[in-house]
Nucleic acid binder design. Structure first.
Lengths: 169, 169
DNA sequence: CAAAATATGTCAACATTACTGACGTAATTG
DNA sequence: CAATTACGTCAGTAATGTTGACATATTTTG
């Protein structure tokens, strides 16, 4: 058995990489914190943010498609979606082809909030990139993509419009 | 005004970096998912994980110090801590110097679970690193550290035992 | 066309994790 | 000994998630 290998996949002598575990925890906490503060001023939480984000990114999304992305139950979605619709951040129309479906769209007000939230988070990324050299962004994307479950990776790449070639380091 | 700058910090024409936002979201979801599944078999949640993790990393931690790391209220901490103590994953002893303090330690059982959880997450990191070239780990750490709030960065570096020199790209 | 399947909405009950506020107790400090 | 500190606990509330059951509108199928 090779000792000191970089992968340390063996079950015997593996040493936890505490630094990465804790960095990921703190980085994500501060990342979502940006959005949390803005959402609070509207009386919204993270659940509202996720719904607003994916509807704004994929206008015309149906309830079923949204549930599949968020992986929550329809009862759970319904509460936050109802609030977003009641306060005119999102609009639901009967499906164009199949009227049983409801297609979701952001209103101008909803689009603006979604964009403001995304820009807050973009700002944190941009600042982080400043100290990371010219290929920092590609490297960060490759790292994050590699952290995603392998069977979900293709779907995530489609969602973000990433070409397969960009995935390689 | 410089247009097309890589930082795009200006308020006018900034374009959200959706790819990074969404990758970070999915990567973190799958990362914590590993631990969630193991914790479920013990009837524990993420709150228990965080407590167990930091106590195992810093034996002798007091309640106040733990609250400061987790940034939750003592009432919130108390419930999960009580369960972890009741099921002998964590032990609380009166403070060595000041008996008002309670110092927290993991039991052998608690250490084992903490280690298993950390190894699950380490495994995901290790696999991710395989496709990222030899300096993937340093690059990932630099990226994540740069994503942390600047005023928290020093403290996080101390916690993970990172020297200042390693922070530069 | 009637029956079945599909997409969604809704009601009820419950769990986890967080919060605020108030009060109690033990130990230390001045 | 009085004040402060560290912690525990009780009560009430909120956000987000769950399961299960049932209603409604629409489309598809036999």
């Amino acid at each position: 058995m090779k000792s000191g290998a970089s992968t340390q996949a063996a079950g015997d002598e593996a040493v936890p990489i505490y630094a990465l575990i804790e960095l990921f925890f703190f980085a994500y906490r501060d990342f979502v914190g940006d959005a949390d503060r803005l959402l609070e001023t509207f009386g919204f939480g993270r659940a509202h943010h996720r719904v607003l984000h994916f509807v704004s990114r994929q206008p015309g999304l149906t309830i079923a498609e949204l549930l599949d992305i968020l992986k929550i139950t329809k009862q759970s979605l319904n509460r936050v979606l109802k609030e977003l619709i009641a306060e005119s951040f999102i609009e639901a129309r009967a499906g164009a082809l199949d009227r049983r479906h409801r297609q979701l769209f952001t209103t101008p007000k909803g689009s603006r909030l979604a964009r403001d939230l995304a820009l807050l988070q973009t700002r944190r990324f941009s600042r982080a990139m400043e100290g990371l050299g010219p290929d920092g962004r590609e490297r960060a994307m490759a790292f994050l993509l590699a952290m995603v479950d392998s069977h979900e990776r293709k779907r995530v790449m489609e969602l973000i419009g990433m070409k397969a070639a960009e995935a390689q380091s």
